[in-house]
Every structure is written in structure tokens, then in C-alpha cells.
Nucleic acid binder design. Structure first.
Length: 260
DNA sequence: CTAGATGTTAAGGT
DNA sequence: CACCTTAACATCTA
């Protein structure tokens, strides 16, 4: 589920496993994930280098090499990272595989090939070029209010990466559930208090999800996440969880405490 | 067999 | 211009 918390966990995993190790070999097993770079070029930039640090913005992970170049990873709907010894099989759907000189490997996994791998000299410029808004974790209330705009539905605004970078379908539902707001409520119709609540909910949901390693199983009781796809009773108010279509996706919510 | 699944983007409509 | 919906991308699963 690569939204901000998931990508933050990938970043920490990468930092803990793969920094400062020399890349002996780089292999691209599907060119479909490449954006703006050919496999031959990517391999040439990676081979013999080390990953020196990383930076996350929204759902993007930027990995600095010991050269002026950064590797850019985006995980699409089904992405992951795996670090493993050479005695282990490369996981299924590994699309970019780095082999370090210690024999360990780092695989960028993308089952549905909706993820993207590219290169940049300049993460700031890359972020600007993509039109990404400020990272959700970096937003204070004032910045949040500004980023949300007025005219969109509140779920649409939260998920719009040009407004705020990092929030996707699952966690936007969680924030709205916590703040008690209907997904289609128009941003401009929110009271000051409601906007404040939503900002608090955003920070709380993201922080908690990161603390729980972005593992759905570990989310606190009373969260909406485990109720997705069910018609269970809302643990907060006893309403019945349901879904509607919003922003081209399925939005789960409780119609009794999240009213329009 | 079909619909839908965590994301992004382009195209077309209001 | 601002915003919305839809479809497409590729693969797997209920």
C-alpha cells in the first residue's frame, strides 16, 4: 500500500540495509518501469557506485549515489523493496536488482508495473517538474489550509498530489473517518474547527501508521482500515460502514458520523 | 469470467 | 481556469 507511511518505511528499510555498499551489478528485468532513462544508462550510472543517503517526498523516494546522481523510486499500487542474501531467490516481480559486493541484493519490486524508476540530478527540480505539493508530514495548519484550496471535495483535495504529496485512498479515508467528515464535503464549507480537526487527523493518522510500520494488521483498534470491504458496525457510533465512488476510487466511510 | 485492488496521467465534460 | 469523471496502464485474486 504505497502511500506516505509505506514509502517512509521503505526509506528506513533502505537506510538500514543498503547504504554505503558498493554496487557490483545492476539489472533491469522490465523496461516498463523506467521513466526517462534507458536500462543501459541506468545500469551504467549504478554500477560501481554506492547509495549514500535517501530522501522521501510524498510517495517518492530519492536515493543519492556517491555521484551527482539520484535514483528516483515510485512504487505505484504494488511496490516494495527487498534486501536478501545471494542464497535466496530474487522475489517475484523484482524489476530492478542491485547486487552489492557483499553478495547481498536489493530488489525494487513492482508486481503490476505501475511503479516508476528514474534518475535525476536534482530532487527539488524533479518535485517541481512533477508539480507535487508539499509533503503531508511537513504541513502546519496554515500550510494545510492553503494547500487544501476551497472548491474540491475534501477527499479529492487530500489525495491530490499537486495539493499535498503523500496521501492516497486508504489513509485519506482514515483521516476523514477520524475527523468525522463526509468524503464529498466541499473544502470551502468546512468550519475553522473542522479544518483544524482534519489537520490533526492527518498528522495523527500518518504518524501512527509510520509508528506501526505501515502494517494494516498493527493499526489501533477503532480504525476504519480493518473494516474496509465489510458492512460492519462503526465502532465509534454504531452506524453501518459503506462505500461510495469518489475521485475515481472506492471511498469507505461511516454515513452516520460522516455527513455531508 | 468479471470486477476491483493501495497510483498516476491524459482526455473529455460541467 | 477549476474541478470532476472516466479510462488506461499490467497483474492478480475474490
Amino acid at each position: 500500500m504505497p502511500e506516505l507511511p509505506d514509502v517512509e518505511i521503505y526509506k528506513r528499510y533502505l537506510d538500514a540495509t543498503s547504504l554505503h555498499k558498493k554496487i557490483r551489478r545492476a539489472e533491469v528485468t522490465s523496461g516498463k518501469i523506467l521513466e526517462g532513462v534507458f536500462a543501459r544508462r541506468l545500469v551504467r550510472e549504478l554500477r560501481g557506485r554506492k547509495l549514500s543517503s535517501s530522501l522521501r517526498h510524498g510517495k517518492y523516494l530519492f536515493i543519492r549515489l556517491d555521484s551527482p546522481m539520484w535514483l528516483v523510486l515510485h512504487f505505484g499500487m504494488t511496490g516494495d523493496l527487498a534486501y536478501y542474501g545471494e542464497d535466496r531467490e530474487t522475489p517475484e516481480h523484482g524489476r530492478l536488482i542491485l547486487t552489492f559486493t557483499n553478495g547481498y541484493r536489493l530488489a525494487y519490486i513492482s508486481q503490476r508495473l505501475l511503479g516508476k524508476v528514474s534518475l535525476t540530478y536534482d530532487p527539488e527540480g524533479y518535485i517541481k517538474g512533477k508539480g507535487l505539493g508539499p509533503d503531508a508530514m511537513a504541513l502546519d495548519l496554515k500550510g494545510f489550509r492553503k494547500a487544501l484550496g476551497k472548491r474540491s471535495g475534501v477527499k479529492s483535495a487530500l489525495m491530490n498530489q499537486r495539493r499535498i504529496a503523500g496521501i492516497g485512498n486508504v489513509y485519506s479515508d482514515e483521516m476523514l473517518y477520524l475527523a468525522g467528515l463526509h468524503p464529498k464535503k466541499v473544502v470551502g464549507s468546512l468550519t475553522k474547527e473542522q479544518t483544524g480537526e482534519l489537520h490533526r487527523a492527518m498528522r495523527h493518522v500518518l504518524r501512527t501508521a509510520v509508528r506501526k510500520k505501515a502494517d494494516p494488521e498493527r493499526m489501533p483498534r477503532g480504525w476504519l482500515l480493518p473494516l474496509r470491504g465489510s458492512k460492519e458496525k462503526c465502532p465509534r457510533c454504531g452506524g453501518t460502514i459503506r462505500s461510495i465512488k469518489a475521485v475515481g476510487r472506492r471511498a469507505w466511510y461511516c454515513p452516520s458520523h460522516q455527513r455531508l
